[in-house]
């Protein structure tokens, strides 16, 4: 007889334990299902984002907690943390970026393949934070385009997870032609990226 603790007292319904992404809208009949390619690709991309952690300081520690079993970013399909920019989809910049680090960060961004997203975690990466000083980059958006900013100093793991879910929303809804659009090219041009 097992000891009576909360998880064997409270009965769980097995089906609700397993989370499966909902099907996109479409037409279904016997033996077929039709939807737009955009939605399928978006669905696949958003649930298998490979993050590339660029952790320089304390926000990186919060990220480690986020990847750990208690918060577990793997629940959102971001299990595979890659340490090669060529394989990753999401650049997570966590921590103070000194001006001398700016070109390194940009190089890492350039090495990532399209489509790529960027998340600035914490006050320093977003705006320079408390380091309003001559040696610190006042927000990474001075060197690379940023998709999602996570506020906090340092943000709690919940906030980082929320940021990831905002990235997922963007990824899921992104049109397949966005990266070819003149607006996107103009955005990259404004950062001097071809």
């Amino acid at each position: 007889m097992p000891r009576q603790v909360s998880y064997n007292l409270i009965k769980k319904i097995p089906e609700s334990d397993i989370s499966i992404v909902e099907m996109p809208d479409g037409h279904m009949g016997e033996g077929f299902f039709a939807t737009s390619l955009n939605k399928v690709i978006g669905l696949a991309r958003k649930n298998s984002l490979w993050p590339l952690p660029f952790a320089t300081s304390c926000c990186g520690i919060e990220f480690m907690a986020t990847m750990g079993s208690h918060y577990d970013l793997a629940r959102f399909g971001s299990e595979r943390v890659g340490f090669s920019p060529r394989q990753c989809d999401l650049l997570m910049v966590m921590g103070t970026i000194a001006k001398k680090m700016g070109p390194v960060l940009k190089q890492v961004y350039l090495q990532m393949a399209e489509p790529r997203w960027v998340m600035a975690v914490g006050a320093c990466a977003s705006s320079g934070g408390i380091f309003d000083t001559y040696s610190v980059l006042q927000g990474i958006d001075q060197v690379i385009p940023v998709d999602v900013y996570v506020p906090g100093c340092a943000p709690r793991p919940e906030a980082i997870i929320d940021g990831l879910m905002r990235v997922q929303d963007l990824v899921g809804k992104e049109s397949l032609r966005r990266r070819n659009s003149p607006q996107y090219k103009a955005l990259l041009d404004s950062y001097g990226i071809q």
Binding site: D132, T133, Q138
Partner: peptide, 14 residues
């Protein structure tokens, strides 16, 4: 030379 006192500590681009 940033530690000379005539220069402000803050980043002036902000």
């Amino acid at each position: 030379f940033p530690l000379r006192k005539e220069f402000p500590l803050e980043d002036q681009t902000r």
